[in-house]
Deep mutational scan, measured.
Amino acid sequence: MATGGRRGAAAAPLLVAVAALLLGAAGHLYPGEVCPGMDIRNNLTRLHELENCSVIEGHLQILLMFKTRPEDFRDLSFPKLIMITDYLLLFRVYGLESLKDLFPNLTVIRGSRLFFNYALVIFEMVHLKELGLYNLMNITRGSVRIEKNNELCYLATIDWSRILDSVEDNYIVLNKDDNEECGDICPGTAKGKTNCPATVINGQFVERCWTHSHCQKVCPTICKSHGCTAEGLCCHSECLGNCSQPDDPTKCVACRNFYLDGRCVETCPPPYYHFQDWRCVNFSFCQDLHHKCKNSRRQGCHQYVIHNNKCIPECPSGYTMNSSNLLCTPCLGPCPKVCHLLEGEKTIDSVTSAQELRGCTVINGSLIINIRGGNNLAAELEANLGLIEEISGYLKIRRSYALVSLSFFRKLRLIRGETLEIGNYSFYALDNQNLRQLWDWSKHNLTITQGKLFFHYNPKLCLSEIHKMEEVSGTKGRQERNDIALKTNGDQASCENELLKFSYIRTSFDKI
């Protein structure tokens, strides 16, 4: 039985969820670079991206490699990797027998973001014989899940209580170790020597080791999670996991709180800001991140802002960003909400898709409305799209047979046209069989910064309504002859009103 693990408890099935942008060198404390989270699957090609990484700022997932063999891993080693800020997950990587050479110096898994409450997941690794993470000293947050690894031993010899604050939620089941077939031998045991430290858990006094050649490092209890030197002297209180010299914040392997210019500090002093819960960055760093993602459509890219001495992905609820200094300031009234469309555009074809934009005031991208039916549609669209004030790209209304009016965009005031449909149009209306009105132009103002209007096959939309939009939106004169079809717009509506004058002759039985 794995020490510190839980057996036999019912657990939810383990679901495996399925960018080499360097964020800056980590400095003297770390020998390499800070790398983003990685999802490495199918083959070993991307694994080489770990070569210079000291910190993975995010998670590391290595999974679904069915053609790899043990010899493929023999020359692979990433000794610079010290810390993973989120979680480490391995799933069905064939041929991998140990992690001792792959990650010989991995010391800390912070667990800032977890995989279903777990910071370390080893699942269905069919050839893994031992973990071998002999320098792993601290899992700051989260638990361990090690399950269905039929060859995995050296679990009962690990004292997880020396690595985690609590072992109650560890789930370590259905491994070879369960069948008591392992016969784990710690260093020196074969020669009758006791080389590794022994600890007591559940009444068992057991030597602690990761492999037959690597003991588990056990520091004096007084050192807590700070770690200790090879001689057993406690590291500085700002260290986490390990250090090369005692009581020196510049000799830590990793930091308990924050890293700044080669030393570990309790908090980031001005003019620095907390970033990702582990390091200090200056304003320029946060500003660069903001600008890199301002026009990016890459998933996970955030326009970072500053709030409460932190550089964070977005302002919290009730705050909006001051564009001059990136500071989050309290909103006066309802907060603006910028919604970034991942692929640059979004099609609204149902109430469900409209709900995804609920509360958005600025759309960074283009909207395509293609709704053919739905219950209580006008009210639903207004509830979900009615706060949109600005669209950076274009607005396209296409084959939306259920629409009679666009009044559900009740606050839309600006279409920038930074991206144009077919390279020309910022407003595009095609084949809307029941569209009769755009907006009530006596109450609604709309500016279209650039781009043209396109109207074709809107049989109940009168040309007068379209011409009014040209005047109000500032697009009059931009359109070419064929942009607004004269014969297919309003051709099934009563669009022309003329005053009919009647004269009559009164007659009676005795007068003409």
Rank of each mutant, 00 (worst) to 15 (best):
H28M: 03
P36C: 06
P36T: 08
G37Q: 10
D39C: 10
D39A: 09
I40Q: 01
N42Q: 12
N43A: 07
N43L: 07
N43S: 06
H48K: 15
E49C: 07
E49G: 11
L50D: 00
L50R: 02
N52M: 00
V55F: 01
E57D: 09
G58I: 00
H59E: 13
H59L: 01
L60D: 01
L60T: 01
L60M: 07
L63F: 06
L63S: 08
F66H: 03
F66N: 01
K67A: 06
T68Y: 06
P70H: 06
E71N: 15
D75Y: 10
D75Q: 10
S77H: 01
F78K: 02
P79C: 03
K80G: 14
K80N: 12
M83C: 08
I84E: 00
D86N: 05
Y87I: 00
L89I: 14
L90F: 06
V93I: 04
Y94K: 09
S98A: 11
S98F: 02
L99A: 10
K100N: 15
D101L: 14
L102T: 06
P104K: 01
P104Y: 00
L106D: 00
L106C: 00
L106F: 03
T107M: 07
R110S: 12
R110W: 04
R113A: 01
F115T: 13
F115M: 04
N117F: 11
Y118K: 05
F123Y: 06
M125Y: 00
H127Y: 04
E130Y: 14
Y134N: 04
N135V: 01
M137C: 06
M137Q: 09
N138R: 15
T140E: 04
G142M: 01
G142E: 00
R145G: 02
R145P: 01
R145M: 07
E147P: 01
E147T: 06
K148W: 02
N150W: 06
L155N: 06
L155E: 04
T157C: 08
I158Q: 03
W160A: 01
W160T: 01
W160L: 05
R162I: 11
E168T: 09
I172L: 11
I172E: 03
V173T: 05
L174H: 11
L174A: 05
D177I: 02
D178M: 13
E180N: 10
C182A: 12
G183E: 14
D184R: 14
C186Q: 02
G188I: 14
G188R: 06
K191Q: 04
K191H: 03
K193V: 04
N195Q: 13
P197A: 14
P197S: 12
V200M: 05
V200C: 02
N202L: 05
N202P: 12
T211A: 12
H212V: 05
S213R: 12
H214M: 13
C215G: 03
K217S: 12
T221P: 04
I222Y: 05
S225F: 11
H226F: 15
H226K: 08
T229H: 03
G232Q: 08
G232H: 05
L233N: 14
C234M: 03
C239L: 00
G241N: 02
C243F: 00
S244R: 11
P246V: 08
D247M: 04
D248W: 03
D248E: 04
P249S: 05
P249L: 04
T250K: 07
T250V: 07
A254V: 04
C255Y: 01
C255G: 00
G262D: 14
C264G: 00
V265F: 05
V265I: 07
V265A: 08
T267I: 01
C268V: 00
P269C: 01
Y272V: 07
F275H: 12
D277Q: 12
W278H: 05
C280W: 00
F283P: 11
F283D: 10
S284H: 08
C286Y: 04
C286R: 01
Q287G: 14
H290W: 15
H290Q: 13
N295P: 04
S296W: 15
R298E: 08
R298P: 06
R298V: 04
Q299V: 06
Q299K: 00
G300D: 14
G300V: 12
Q303N: 08
V305F: 11
V305M: 13
V305Q: 06
I306D: 12
I306H: 07
I306N: 01
N309E: 12
C311R: 01
I312S: 05
P313Q: 15
C315F: 02
C315H: 01
Y319A: 11
T320G: 14
S324R: 10
L326S: 11
P330N: 07
L332N: 14
G333E: 15
P334H: 02
C335W: 03
C335Y: 03
P336K: 15
